[in-house]
Design a protein around this nucleic acid. Sequence first.
DNA 1: AAGTGGTCTAGACCACTCC
DNA 2: GAGTGGTCTAGACCACTTA
Lengths: 233, 233
Amino acid sequence: MTAPETRSWQTIRDEVLRRIHSREWRPGDLIPSEADLAAEFGCARATVNRALRELADTGLLERRRKAGTRVAPNPVRKATLSIPVTRLEIEARGAAYAHVLLGTDRATPPPHVQGVLRLPSGTRLLHIRALHMADGRPYAYEDRWVNPDAVPAILTADLDSISANEWLVANAPFSDGSFTFLAESADAELAKLLDCAEGTALIVIERTTWDGATPITAVRLHYRPGHRLQAGL
Amino acid sequence: MTAPETRSWQTIRDEVLRRIHSREWRPGDLIPSEADLAAEFGCARATVNRALRELADTGLLERRRKAGTRVAPNPVRKATLSIPVTRLEIEARGAAYAHVLLGTDRATPPPHVQGVLRLPSGTRLLHIRALHMADGRPYAYEDRWVNPDAVPAILTADLDSISANEWLVANAPFSDGSFTFLAESADAELAKLLDCAEGTALIVIERTTWDGATPITAVRLHYRPGHRLQAGL
DNA sequence: AAGTGGTCTAGACCACTCC
DNA sequence: GAGTGGTCTAGACCACTTA
């Protein structure tokens, strides 16, 4: 045997991948148990477990106690988007970042914001509007509502020198959150801010974050026309 | 001590999360080594490792040999989108699925498709256009190019009864792929197909898949107006 | 009742990287 | 060189699920 004697969990993962890929194991098939595979590969069961768990996490295998491990019949593709702080996103593209605070006020948010934050109607929040610039050109428009009860210190923060985005990342740890992606046409105001024609299709990210049951912030980011979100895997 | 004596890796993960969250450990801080934490929690180092690895995978911790483990200063949020087969996506909403094959032909793809698939210009591919319906109403328009060299069997598949989407999932294993999300305005044809006004902003998913170095398929999915992609985490 | 995955342990060696 | 994380082992017990 000239085969390498290495039997790391990556080796086993790759071999399992190869067997699925070569259709030796087909979608829906039951594959051997961890104990059997450990015997076959000459390694500890924990090592096999690590490899199979990895593949189950990415949706390629389905595992159930007693029932065993199957090749997923309908592999649900999991696309992972990395969403860094906007400044870093822009700098990663090699562009110079700048940030323009368009205004802050305290007001009652529109109903849909109240809804997603599950706030009683009439609650007043801090409203922040800002523009992120890349090389002097508009990159994304940020419309944010912050719950000052959750992070009182933001009322005294200098949001001209640090974006609310970054201030919150550094100062408002959160336990939960969600992202939604959608498309929207630029209205007159957005067209002006993002320097595009009215009606242009824009991609929008809506994000909310929570500290346990306490809502922290809800934000909508409208990206400049043509923006693409690239997902891995 | 009335604290429970359970010390599973989830327990440890949650306790580490709590310390980060309570700002006992702040962004950029070095946290104790695995050995120290194992001693503190009274468990094996492997258990601590499992907990910390989990948090590092989600981007909350940064780990380096010798340098130790730090709380990530700029936690990169990883949003995970689950992208199932369109039929299952529709059925999960409790709607009836149907699928209309609009046409197939063999042709030379437009330059941008040739580009992303890295094919020599002039290569002829199978072109498939279809509409996914939910409860009889248009849900998404699919415009797909398939490399018949990679999956010759598709030329004889009955794409009326099974969508190309599902046929490929079941018959064309792939090793790599990528997703891109963007916004586009409906042109006259799309407006007609999706039963919306011309110029409506639509969300678009572009997907390509590969079998090693061999391109399999490139597809663009235009969703009906108002569609949202919901990401977890 | 029994089979399978899920997890934990105690120990070991290795790989990397900072000093 | 030394400290830290990365991984593997052999064994064990438990939890869940199906038969």
